[in-house]
């Protein structure tokens, strides 16, 4: 009897954990949505900010986030895919694999603000790119590199060995097999990983604090060397700078909702895609 009570109590605790977790998820989405919807309209999404950030829209921040994300993926996807191809298709010696795997794991654990410091020193100062889209994209790209590599690796490993054997047996070279057979077969999985990374990059703030982001630009960036506004940084700036806290909080709600929708759409898409792929295999 006592056992039964302990069990019920224990199970209740577990139930409580999951419910609390879901409660927070619900609360975040609820509060941001309800308050954000009040300010979001066509003008908000398409206009530049006016009157010291208290009116107008957030279009430059949306555009900036788009550029930064695009740049980061452009940099990290080829590099990450190449790394994954090397690890999965060229079967290097095990100590090489270990070194690379350790580097990837540790890079994945580096705090995001430290990437910001690295980007500041190397891209902004050393290479002289300044605070710019270029510096920010490269910094973000390095940050998501481990994620891109793991996703690509997973996708490549899921390609059945029999495809490789069949291709090689037809007299395809190793490279032809990789390019024409393995990578195309792994592409859906790689894409899913990339989509997840997009969500991560779009929402990151700390790496772009010192490398790309600025509080206010009059218009849109005109080159990769321009500073940009970005959605996540804009939220931060609205909450910590300026002189009209109330007005700014409203706009920050709008910004958060836009960012949240963006990120959630992207990750839901990835989750759905992945479940489809798993179902197929």
């Amino acid at each position: 009897m006592k056992n039964k009570i302990t069990q019920n109590l224990g199970f209740f605790l577990l139930f409580f954990s999951i419910i609390t977790t879901l409660f927070f998820l619900g609360a975040i989405i609820y509060f941001i949505s309800v308050n954000g919807l009040k300010v979001i309209n066509w003008e908000f999404l398409t206009q530049v900010p006016r009157k010291g950030m208290t009116e107008g829209g957030i279009a430059p921040a949306i555009v900036g986030t788009f550029y930064l994300t695009f740049g980061a993926i452009l940099f990290s996807l080829p590099l990450g895919l190449a790394c994954a191809i090397y690890l999965c298709e060229y079967s290097p010696k095990s100590y090489v694999v270990n070194i690379i795997r350790m580097s990837i794991n540790n890079l994945a654990g580096v705090p995001s603000v430290v990437f910001g410091l690295f980007g500041l020193t190397v891209f902004v100062k050393f290479f002289g790119f300044g605070v710019s889209i270029l510096s920010g994209s490269l910094t973000l790209g390095i940050m998501v590199l481990p994620q891109i590599i793991s996703a690509s690796q997973e996708a490549l490993l899921a390609v059945p060995q029999s495809y490789r054997e069949a291709s090689l047996a037809l007299g395809a070279t190793h490279w032809q097999t990789t390019k024409k057979m393995v990578v195309p077969a792994a592409l859906p999985g790689i894409l899913t990983g990339v989509i997840l990374s997009i969500g991560r990059v779009a929402g990151e703030t700390a790496p772009i604090l010192f490398t790309a982001a600025t509080y206010y630009t009059r218009g849109y960036p005109d080159s990769v060397f321009s500073e940009v506004m970005a959605l996540p940084y804009h939220i931060y700036a609205l909450m910590t700078e300026g002189t009209h806290p109330e007005k700014q909080t409203e706009i920050a709600y709008g910004c958060s909702l836009v960012l949240l929708i963006l990120v959630l759409l992207v990750s839901t898409l990835a989750i759905v895609l992945r479940q489809r792929q798993r179902g197929e295999l």
């Binding site: 977790t21 927070f24 998820l25 975040i28 941001i32 995001s112 997840l196 969500g199 991560r200 779009a202 929402g203 990151e204 703030t205 700390a206 996540p232 940084y233 939220i235 931060y236 958060s256 960012l259 949240l260 990120v263 959630l264 992207v266 990750s267």
Partner: peptide, 8 residues
């Protein structure tokens, strides 16, 4: 929950 950006 993991996908929600830290700024949010």
């Amino acid at each position: 929950l993991a996908a929600i950006p830290s700024i949010v």
